[in-house]
Structures are given as structure tokens and as C-alpha cells.
Design a protein around this nucleic acid. Sequence first.
DNA 1: ATATATACATACATTCTTGTTTGTATATAA
DNA 2: TTATATACAAACAAGAATGTATGTATATAT
Lengths: 206, 206
Amino acid sequence: MVRKSKEDAELTRKRIITAAREVFLSRGVSRTTLEHIATQANVTRGAIYWHFKNKTEIFHAIREQVLLPLIDRMDDSLTLDGNDDPLTQIKKSLCQTIDDLNDNIEMRETYEIIMIKCEYVEDFSEVLQQILENCSSILDKLVLGYQRAQAQNLLACTLSPLALAQDTHLFFSGLLHMWVKDADGSRFRNQAKSLIESHINLRRKH
Amino acid sequence: MVRKSKEDAELTRKRIITAAREVFLSRGVSRTTLEHIATQANVTRGAIYWHFKNKTEIFHAIREQVLLPLIDRMDDSLTLDGNDDPLTQIKKSLCQTIDDLNDNIEMRETYEIIMIKCEYVEDFSEVLQQILENCSSILDKLVLGYQRAQAQNLLACTLSPLALAQDTHLFFSGLLHMWVKDADGSRFRNQAKSLIESHINLRRKH
DNA sequence: ATATATACATACATTCTTGTTTGTATATAA
DNA sequence: TTATATACAAACAAGAATGTATGTATATAT
């Protein structure tokens, strides 16, 4: 078999991306060969070079596949849900991400690759900047949430919404990193929800 | 020149470690060749193979060089300083680590390598376990601190010392990761101290 | 004083990887 | 219906990178 229809081609492209994600996960990005990916995808390197310029481009494709839907959801997450109070909204938003990590294999594997199976050098160092930018936008959303919480007099403390948002953001960054590293789940994955609960309770007036 | 005295040999060993740290930092661990390290250290690969079994062993040597003194200090940090109250002790302990990162080049570079220039696969996956164990011991120290804070009625909230310690631990993990990623310093490095300050103030009764 | 182990440098063989080139069957456009 | 671009497979060439084997000058022990 050689020339496929356009749909077939798109399918092979996705198979390559999936295969790359699997191999990146088990061997790390740097140690992964295009031959490894090709074998896993049941194609030859020829197919890979047809669809992608090089390994870095595959990595970006994997990121986009997970990141784009995520960004879409983030916007909803803190603006919708008019029934919940702002602090509950923040809590649910964080918990939702944990649920996604548990349920969505692609997302979980991609996060794992990004956090502990990739070296941020050369082509990849720009990804760090993108990550920091994503963090900024998450921080903005949190600030909005805490501003509304303050306006509704829900807060137990006098810290500024920005300070609270930064603290929450760092907490959640740490949680995600630990979630990923805690492969057997005993230390963080199983308790993630209750850790979030405590974090929010800490700032809610009782 | 060939056979050196024992002191000379130990010096070359250290030169290799330093060179490896520098090259790991700029090229990432996986993409670093023993030849790269050798060139940077002004030796040949022969010298490296004499002192180390392989690249992984050099990586471990770099980690130990920074980690061993760090563990020693951690024990002091929360037990000494009898004049400060427990919450201030925790705060100072966290700030001390930030100061160390700023002042100690070896430590800073090593952290950066461990967090964003290394892929945790094969030989390196066991390092993840070690990291999680270190986290456990840090958590234990924080729990002790918050227990004393609770005993002295310093806490603004009803959360358990364990929950507070977990929250602080995740906050600080996140902070360290962001500190490392924020190379230009604008987003996290410059504010690290005040972020810690806010985090502690959040739980102090006023 | 001499033997031996040490601390490397140098050379070699083998095994990946990569990028490119070439070949080719077929979808698709004209 | 035929020409052309597509979607790959297969072969090729060149350069790394690794581990090992060998050589060797000299501390150091005896």
C-alpha cells in the first residue's frame, strides 16, 4: 500500500502523534528515535518525515492536541456556573483539572512528558516561555475569582486577591508536579481533591 | 602528563563533575556526550571512564554534591532558632532555601538540571522516588512546625497541622519550579520572598 | 630500587541516528 | 483519461556516541 486518501493520511498523522506520545512517555523525548516512533505507529520513517519536519514538531503537535481544548475549557470554567460562589468556582475548576488528568489518557501522558520526560534546551527552551504565559493567564483567572470572593465578603483574610491568586497558583503548580511524579498514587493522586479542599477552606470565612 | 597524585586525581574528579554540571545545564542531560564533558573539563573520555562508570553516575555525583549539605542544613533549620515563633521559623526556613538558590551557583544549576534538563526514564526514574522521599521528610518537618504553632495558638484557621504542612509543601514545590523556569526573574524570582511572606501570613492569627 | 597499581590518553570497533534521496502506487484534478 | 501531486516505503551516506582495549608515565608501596 502506498498513496492513501486524504482521510487516511490524516489518520496516519494521528497514529504517529499517538505513537510518539507513547514512546516519549516510556523512553523520554531525547532518547526517542524517529525509528522508535515509526515502529510503534506501524509506519516507516518516510511517513514521519512526510508529515513532520522533525521530532520537535511532533512534540509541539502533541502539546497542541491537549493544550488547545484545555484553553477553551479554562475560559468557561471560571465564568460559567453562576450558582456557585466564587471560592467554590475556583475549587471546582481546580478539581476539574484533576478529574481530567484521571480520565483523559492523552492529557495525563502529555503532562507527564512535559513535566518529567523532556529536557528544555535548544528547540524546547521556548516551550518554557509558553508555559509561563499559560501560567499568567491562569493567574489572571484566579485573580478575578478572588476579587469576586472579596466583593462578596467570603474571605477570611486580608490578603489581596492577587496575593491569594499567586498562592493558589503556586499551590496548584506544586500539586500538578507531585501528581505526575506520584505514579503509584499513594502520596498525592489519591488525596488531590482533599488537598484542594483544604487549600480553599483556608481562605474561606466561617 | 599521565599518572597524578591522589590529590590531583580527586581534583580531576571534581573538575569532571563541575564540567558535567555546566554542560548538562546548557545541553540537557540526554544530549550531553561524554566527549562534551571531557572537553569542558580539559580531559579525555579516558579520565571520565576512570572516575565514573557512565553518565548516570556523574549525574548522581552532581546531585549528592548539592543534596548532602542540604539535608544537613534542613535538620538545623527548623529545630534551631529558639527565639522565633514556629511560623516565623517556617518562613525563614523557606526563605533560606531561596537565598541559597540565589547565592550558591552549584545548587542553582543542579536544581535547574534536575527540574528542567533531565528526563526521568530508565536509570533516572529511581531519582523520582528519591525526590518523593525528600519531600516526605520536608513535610514531616513542616508538620512539626505547624504543631508547635497550633500549640502556641498562633494559627488563624482550624485546619490540621498536617493539612497546613501539605499546603505549604505544595506551595513551595510550585514556587521552586517556577523559580527555576523564570530565568529572567521578572515573574517569580524577584518576588519569591514576598510570596512566602503572604503564604505564612495567610495562616497567622492577627 | 624495583614492582605494581594508578591515572589517565589514544586508538578502535560497533552500533545507533539522522537527513536525504530515490522509487512507486494511487488518489485526484483537469 | 491522462498527468500530476500525494503519501508514503526503502535504500543510502555520513556522522555521532559508546564502550572497550591498549599504551604509558609515574606515584607509591615494599
